[in-house]
Structures are given as C-alpha cells and as structure tokens.
Design a protein around this nucleic acid. Structure first.
Lengths: 181, 181
DNA sequence: AAGAAACCGAACAATTTGTTTATAATTTTA
DNA sequence: TAAAATTATAAACAAATTGTTCGGTTTCTT
C-alpha cells in the first residue's frame, strides 16, 4: 500500500479516536478531524464518504480480531458449552488488553452501533447454546433463552466498562455465570 | 392553559411523531418539523430549546401513563419485591392494551431511542431491587445485579414485541422470572 | 526521469441552526 | 367591551457545517 495512503488513514483514525475521547460523536465535525489530523479537506473526502463511514471503518478495524477463534478454543470438546465459554473468555481478555481503545469507543455517543454489532457477533457464537437442563423452573422458548444469554453477557461487559474494568476477567465471568447458571 | 399554546404544542408533537415514522431521528431537521406543523420558526424555539428537548417531551407524553404506579401496587407490602413485580406486571398489561400504538413506536427507525428511554424508567422503578438471598452461587455487586435485572426485563419485552405479542403477559412474566429467579 | 497517484487548500453552494426583529392575532383582565 | 398581556408570525440574519470542485504541488512507482 502506498505509504501516503497509510499515513493519511492513520492520521485520520488517530485524530478521530482522540476526538471520540473528548467529544460526543455528533459534536465532532469533519473540520475537527482534518485540523487534528493535519490533512486537507478534500483528502478526507477522498478516503471516507462521510463521518459515519469513518465510524464504521473504525469499528471494522477494532473488531478485526476479537471474534476470531483463538488457540485452544478450536479443539473440539465433548461439552458444547466449553468451547463457547472459552471464546467468551477470550473476548474478555481481548477487551482488557486493548482497554484504552475499547473504552474510547464504548464512551462515544453512537456506541449503540458498536454494541449492536458486538451483540450480533456474540449471538453467532452462542447460536447453539441451550438452556442448562433442569436448572430452570420451566421450559423456555429457545430463542428467548439465547437472546437472554447473549444480552446478559453484553450487559456484563457494559457494566464492566462502566466500572472502568476494575474487576478481573475471571471475576466478571463469575458474575456472568452466577446469573445465567 | 392558553389554547394557542396547546394548539401549537400539539401541532409540533404530531408533526414530529409523523416524521419519526418516516425518517431517522438524526435526519429530521427543525425545518422539517415547522413545515409539517405549519408554524413559525421562532414559535418552535419558543416552545423547545432544541430537537433533543422535543424528543424528551415526546417520550414523556408517549409513556405518560405506563410508568405511573397503579391501583393495588400502592399498598405497602411486607415483601419489597411484591410492589416491583406488580408494577412490572402493570407495564406488561399496559403494553398489551395499547399494543398497536407501542408496536408503532418500537418499530420506527429510531426505536432504539425509545427503548433506551424505556429502560431508564425501568431502572428507576427497580432501583431498590436486591438479589434474591441465597439463590445465587456468589455475591454480586449490587449495581451489577440491578442492571442485569432491568436488562433481562427489557430483553424479555423486546423479545415479546419481536414475536408480535403472541405470549400472554403471564407467560412472559413466567419466562422473565425463570431466568432472574 | 517520467508518469501516476495522492495530497493540498482555497473557494464554493447548499443546509442547518438558533436569534432577533417588528407586526399581527388571540386571550386574559379589568 | 376595551385595554393589556401573551403568543404566534415571517423574514432576515450570522455562524457553522457539509460535500464538491479545481488548479497546483508533493510523493511514489516504474
């Protein structure tokens, strides 16, 4: 890739992410971004159609690796849940490792798009999840339970970021398991 | 109240709600609203500081009655939870009663904004909720549990609307209780 | 070195926002 | 009913922002 392109894109992403840490998404203007990135206005529009497109590209970059199966989780396990749990754990560690970046995105005004993308991915991962037999007082519609399970995970993660990631990934997983059984 | 004021406010609300059914919130401009409502620009700003303020007022109107304590729930009960459960039940019945109207609200393009308002109100109602003693395998941070509880309720309601309110309020409450204990 | 690709920045029209003005219509009150 | 107060109005306005265009410059590739 042409170095000029990478240089410009990096400058835009960096400026944008810095601004996301300072202002709400709607309050950030294209002029803010190009001033911070120190590039020309037309250059910005040569790279991104709109500010929304930049936001989506930022998310795509951010999520590039977090949902990829990783290491041991690949191994086929007799327990269906074990692979799922391992992948969720992997996600938690990944979030912790890239903490600052994720915190910035999680606090931006349009974080809802991020959460909704995130949840969709979690739903794919957890698509096979079944309600633990016998532990619940009644039968539940399957899609009800899966949605509940994914949402509980998402809310746990949201809560985690809300507290500034004070708990460890293991502790958070403990909380999550406590409420989902 | 001065009839002119009510007339103007109604015109603004109606126009805004119509527009919400057509466009995303962000795409709606003040000019759109005043054109549709057939009022002067300065009149709009005499009533609402910003578009955001109008949105909040609209939510307050749309959800005016659903969150009000109602009937029996007022009675002081020895069990703290009983009042809360009764209020949540009341909400479900209210949703079912005004089914068409709420379906419209929750299927518009800016439904997320309404869901988020809804959840905030539920959080206020459930602010005192404590984790059922002994039923969970470990201690949880209190705000973690409250958020989990509210989110589970919200997701149950969303799921309910997703299925076109096929289940009865009692059934839905059964599902909700099955997962929250 | 030459051509291609990317960048620049300045200018531009078009929207949108929120304020201000002076005037007209409506409601309240005395 | 008449005067006073309140509300609505259109039009004009500055300021901010968006997205495009264009001629000229720098940087990369071959």
């Amino acid at each position: 890739m042409d170095r000029r392109i990478k240089k410009t894109r990096d400058a835009i992403f960096t400026a944008f992410e810095e601004l996301l840490a300072e202002k709400r998404y709607e309050q950030i203007t294209v002029s803010d971004i190009i001033d911070r990135a120190n590039i020309g206005r037309s250059t910005f529009y040569a790279h991104f159609e709109t500010k929304d497109a930049l936001f989506m590209a930022t998310c795509d970059e951010l999520f590039a690796h977090i949902f990829e199966p990783h290491g041991r989780e690949h191994s086929h396990d007799f327990s269906e849940d074990h692979g799922l749990r391992a992948r969720l754990t992997h996600i938690l560690y990944h979030l912790k490792d890239d903490r600052d970046r994720y915190t910035r995105i999680f606090s931006c005004e349009s974080a809802d798009l991020f959460w909704s993308y995130f949840k969709k991915q979690v739903a794919v991962i957890a698509a096979q999840k079944k309600a633990p037999a016998g532990s619940l007082p009644q039968e539940l519609p399957e899609d009800f339970y899966i949605n509940f399970y994914c949402s509980a995970f998402m809310e746990a993660v949201k809560w985690w970021f809300g507290t500034g990631l004070t708990a460890t990934p293991e502790e958070l997983e403990g909380y999550f398991e406590a409420v989902t059984g």
